[in-house]
Design a protein around this nucleic acid. Structure first.
Lengths: 170, 170
DNA sequence: TATTGTTATACTCTATAACTATA
DNA sequence: TATAGTTATAGAGTATAACAATA
């Protein structure tokens, strides 16, 4: 496969010392070979995720939502009454990091908190009408962005990619 | 597709106030529905990447290499003489963030820096024999980890996943 | 004038320990 | 005793501006 033996890559420039016919003492690289890294799932998944998120950040700036804000709002939108603890479990977040995030969303009037009907320790998170309307637009924009982002993928390939990624983390 | 209409999810617990027959005032959620997020490439790619990197961190602790250290060392290993600038371009890193990283690798005796043969501004990065030996073990471990990680994928599926991810970011 | 490498620095993200109120 | 939410804080990761040396 692409494993690429530890070859000295494409050396162009070469020696400077007194060995015109032997191996180069100091080599230069004109084209960087990353073929080994490209065999690793982690490397590729991370590079792909960062590329997608880059575009997501730009598109979602209009709504004042970073990726995590979007995820949290989306889960609240589709699960009104969800608790912080449930959000953390579903999105793999740590409770302390969710606190400020939820406070911020509440301060913006996008969500409101209501006592949990059965558990006095818990607090249910609900979208406000303002938050719900915002998320309808934001989710539509995200879905539109998906289509544009995966322009180099067929619809079937995109579906396959989603399924394979979910096999990794679910 | 899985878009999942903004249904109020599976409400279990219900009202507490004086409307026994109408809609619940305060709802609770027993199973969190993330089906919308699962339609987004960015969400899935990020979740998958973090899951893989989690295992990577544990496995590579033995070598004292975080993911970025591993990537940088791997590129140097396969491209002796590569410059910092080339590393940044290849791995999508920012030059200021690479400085400390390279200094650390040099302090550990894993790489050494030699003047670039043709460009007096640049410095070529080369693996030491110690660094080269370490990376041979580390890359073998990473490849082994890949196999274990993708236990739920067939070899063909793993190949497909790599190709599709590369279509996103390359 | 442009580029390589660097410094300083700020900002965000992520992680851990410990506390309270309730179950 | 265990869990939900919170506070404080530390550490890692990522970002921009500006500078010296060389092309």
């Amino acid at each position: 496969m692409a494993h690429a033996a530890p070859s000295p890559a494409k050396s162009t420039t070469s020696l400077t010392l007194a060995n015109q016919a032997s191996l180069p003492v100091v080599s230069a690289v004109d084209q960087v070979d990353t073929s080994y890294l490209q065999t690793l799932l982690g490397y590729n998944a991370r590079r792909a995720a960062l590329t997608i998120i880059e575009g997501f950040l730009e598109r979602m700036a209009e709504f004042g939502l970073r990726p995590v804000d979007f995820s949290v709002m989306s889960v609240i939108q589709h699960n009104p009454g969800v608790t912080s603890r449930q959000l953390c479990a579903a999105l793999n977040l740590l409770p302390p990091n969710l606190v400020g995030l939820v406070q911020s969303l509440e301060a913006r009037g996008l969500i409101h908190r209501q006592p949990h009907p059965t558990d006095g320790r818990a607090v249910g998170l609900h979208p406000t009408s303002k938050g719900s309307a915002l998320m309808q637009k934001a989710e539509q924009a995200a879905t539109d962005l998906e289509v544009a982002r995966s322009a180099r993928l067929t619809s079937a390939q995109r579906k396959t990619l989603l399924e394979l990624l979910q096999k990794i983390y679910l």
